[in-house]
Computed example of a mutant assay.
Amino acid sequence: MSSVGSYLKKQRAKLSLSLNDVCEQTGITTTRLNRIERNQVNEPSPEVLKKLAVLYQIDLIYLYKLAGYMENVDVTGQIQPFINYEILDKEEREFIQNSIDFLAQKHFKTK
C-alpha cells in the first residue's frame, strides 16, 4: 500500500493541479501540502484530508485508512459496497470481494 503523501500527489497530478491551485481551492498552504506529499507530516489532520478528498474526488474513508485514522474493523458492517449487497449470501460476497481484490492488485501494479 502506498503512503498517504504519494497517493495524494498522484491524485493531484491526475487532475493536473498545481500546489497553488490546491491552495486557492482549499486554503491548505503550498508548504503544508508539499510536506504532506513528501511524507514529512506524520499525520495530516482529518480536516485537511477531507478538503483534499473533496477536491480530488477520492474516497474519504480510504484516505482516512491510508493515513491511519481508521481501520477496516471501524467500517466493516457500516457500509454497503454496492446496490443489493444485503441480498447476497456469504459465498457470493466473498466471490465479489475476491474479484475486487484481483482488479485492485492489477490496478496497483500499473501505477
Score class of each variant (00 low, 15 high):
29 T>E: 14
45 S>W: 10
31 T>S: 07
67 A>F: 01
14 K>H: 14
23 C>V: 00
26 T>I: 05
106 K>M: 02
21 D>H: 01
57 Q>F: 04
44 P>R: 11
21 D>E: 04
63 L>T: 15
108 F>S: 13
10 K>R: 15
37 E>K: 07
5 G>C: 11
36 I>T: 13
84 N>K: 04
95 F>L: 13
59 D>A: 09
86 E>P: 00
29 T>V: 06
37 E>G: 12
49 L>V: 10
37 E>R: 11
71 E>V: 03
34 N>A: 14
69 Y>C: 09
42 N>C: 07
52 L>Y: 05
83 I>P: 00
72 N>Q: 07
67 A>R: 02
97 Q>W: 01
27 G>N: 13
32 R>D: 11
2 S>H: 11
111 K>N: 06
30 T>I: 09
17 L>Y: 14
79 I>K: 08
28 I>P: 09
72 N>I: 05
14 K>D: 13
77 G>H: 09
107 H>E: 12
82 F>V: 03
94 E>T: 05
81 P>N: 05
6 S>W: 04
19 L>T: 07
59 D>K: 08
77 G>Y: 06
27 G>H: 10
92 E>G: 01
9 K>W: 06
111 K>Y: 05
107 H>M: 08
69 Y>E: 08
88 L>T: 06
58 I>N: 05
88 L>S: 03
47 E>Y: 12
99 S>R: 02
70 M>H: 07
57 Q>A: 14
